[in-house]
Amino acid sequence: MTDILILTHIDYCPPGYLAQVLDEARRDFRVLRVDLGELANIDLDRPRAVAIMGGPMSVNDELPWLATEIAALQHFIRRDIPMIGHCLGAQLLARALGAEVRRMPYTESGWQPMRRAAEASSSPWLAHLPAEFPIFQWHGDSFALPPGARPLLSSPWCENQGFAWGDRTLAVQGHPEMTEELVRLWLKDWAHLLDARQPSQQSVAQMLDQLPARVAALNQVAQGFYRHWLSLAFP
């Protein structure tokens, strides 16, 4: 097994741009499908860094593998290894750290503005970012802040968009890992779940507008997250 573990939960929520960053850094990594039981028999003391990707399920769903994954994350937390959670992955980290995850009264989707929290002024996770920047969103649940967490980001539709716990864990409600291909795939297969009449959701046309430029800017956001995460694991 490699030193970098990426936990996924469905085929259409892969590592995306994270895999590209790791390939460019010449870092081997292993991708597991936790929902298919692939976390079983993994040596949890081996990984030096862990990323947790998204998925359509809720942390509150009665799925046995969710409890297995949360227990694994708690083991990684005790080991104090660098972790980064994306959307569902962020919610799983919040739950592993003792916080509540709740259903929101609406879905937040599309390119939404992130605002830096006042408490985040000195956070190394955000050192590469301005006070406001967009991230691609698609979620209907939201996490509370775990005890001891530092709030990092908020949006007009979701107060808790990101937090740091200690120096080595980042949880981001959005999807910094998106590529052009992933955005187009999601909008091809799942546009029927959207309702552009809701102010918290963009239309498909809005999400696709200037997509190459939007994704290029998002890649810069993600690259800063991922490079800091890697620097903690491989100083």
Rank of each mutant, 00 (worst) to 15 (best):
A71W: 00
A171Q: 03
L145I: 05
T107M: 14
L88Y: 15
L170E: 05
E100T: 15
Y17W: 14
V221L: 01
P156L: 04
A19E: 12
Q74T: 08
C13P: 00
K188W: 08
P130I: 05
D195S: 05
E69M: 14
P235C: 03
E180W: 10
W190F: 15
L7K: 01
L92P: 02
A71T: 09
L182E: 09
W157I: 01
R79F: 04
G224I: 00
M53E: 15
G16T: 04
S142K: 06
L194N: 08
E24V: 11
P64I: 12
F136H: 04
Q206V: 00
Y226F: 11
P147H: 02
S122I: 02
L182Q: 15
R48P: 06
Q223Y: 07
D61P: 03
L92R: 09
P134D: 09
F163E: 02
A51N: 01
S231H: 10
F163M: 02
G140V: 06
L129P: 04
D195W: 06
P64F: 09
S142G: 11
P105I: 00
S142N: 06
V183T: 10
W157C: 00
P212K: 11
I42Q: 15
L218I: 00
Y226C: 03
G110S: 11
A120G: 08
V59N: 11
Q161N: 14
E177I: 11
D80V: 12
V221H: 02
F136T: 00
D195H: 09
R184N: 05
E159W: 04
D167Y: 02
P156D: 07
T8L: 08
F29K: 00
E108N: 04
Q74W: 05
C87Y: 15
L7Q: 02
V215K: 10
Q201N: 01
A49M: 01
K188S: 15
P199R: 05
P105R: 02
D3Q: 14
L211P: 13
L93W: 10
P14R: 11
S155E: 08
W190G: 07
E180V: 01
T179K: 13
P82H: 02
E159A: 15
L5R: 08
S58H: 13
T169Q: 10
W165M: 10
P146L: 07
G162S: 07
F76K: 07
A191V: 09
M83P: 11
S121G: 15
F143K: 07
M1T: 04
S109Q: 10
G16F: 12
G224E: 09
M104Q: 15
V101E: 05
L32P: 01
A94I: 07
L232E: 14
L7D: 00
H128S: 13
W190H: 15
G55L: 13
D141G: 04
A96V: 05
A127Q: 13
P64R: 09
P82V: 12
F234W: 12
G37E: 06
D80I: 04
L88Q: 12
G140P: 01
L73D: 03
E159L: 12
D43K: 08
P146Y: 03
V172C: 10
G37I: 06
L63V: 14
M114C: 12
P124A: 14
H228S: 12
M104P: 12
R78V: 12
C13R: 06
V204P: 02
R79N: 03
Y226M: 03
P130D: 05
E69F: 14
R116I: 13
Q210R: 14
I135K: 04
A99T: 07
V204K: 13
E108H: 04
H192A: 13
W229Y: 06
L5A: 08
P64Y: 06
